[in-house]
Amino acid sequence: MWLDPANPQLNKNGELHHLLSLEGLPAGVLRQILDTAESFVGVTQREVKKVPLLRGKAVFNLFFEASTRTRTTFEIAAKRLSADVINLAINVSSQSKGETVLDTVANLSAMQADMFIVRHAASGAPYLIAKHVAPDIHVVNAGDGRHSHPTQGLLDMYTIRHYKGDFTKLRVAIVGDILHSRVARSQIHALTTLGCPEIRVIGPKTLLPADVDRLGVQVYGDMREGLKDVDVVMMLRLQNERMNGALLPSAQEFYKYYGLTEDKLALAKPDAIVLHPGPMNRGVEIDSSVADGKQSVILPQVTFGIAIRMAVMSILAGN
């Protein structure tokens, strides 16, 4: 096998071949993606927001789980690289006719796909696909189950670096539904790799995974305690649609204890920034005055997200 068996995202030269998870990616690769994205931010501000890098390549957006926002950002990124983009919402087509994931992928590969952007409700699905595609095809995980959402984690890192610079001096809090969040895992892995010395996770016990302290983070049940003197507040979306059983009494109660309000944010450093992966539940995990406030960098995150996805796709296509 020509891919590194310990980390099937990397080829034998240690270069990125698939992007499946931020876990196990060396700091050099993460920085390469962030640096390349910085050059693409300039491109997206020009009159012609397009470069010819992926001209003639076919990028398939393979969404086994609906997500208009993520699909759109990948689509814009691929188009700005001049790739041809084909969008497939699989849950409403072949899967309902009983075709397996691998059959779907084999069929699309026969149509000369160069890259698959995969979103799936089952953790590990992009790994399965990456294992079975031809060696010249690249796979990007656009979110798999509770496991990972690497491009979201990368755009969060880009946003933090843009506003705060050096990771090695930062205190970062991740707040909310850690248990169901693939974003939180990606964030924790990336922050750790980039040298962030203090990562706090804040949330009710019922929404924290049992093994959370194994990730090398500090756990806080009390949000006011956890936000004290942090530089960065990363809010998570309350995953209503992923919640089976009664983990929370009510959204109102969650807001009372873990919603980010102006008075709770005042406990963080005065120049702390607030991130949210979207879409926001206003009045559940975040108050509107904070979401639209001076410290919010939620809309810049969206802009940077396109540059990050352009960087990932162009690095993969070149390796």
Binding site: S39, G42, V51, L53, I315, N319
Partner: peptide, 17 residues
Amino acid sequence: FYRDDFSRKGLRRNVKS
């Protein structure tokens, strides 16, 4: 981002803006 040898050599590291 405009080089004609991208498909052979890939993206150079340390791309400047």
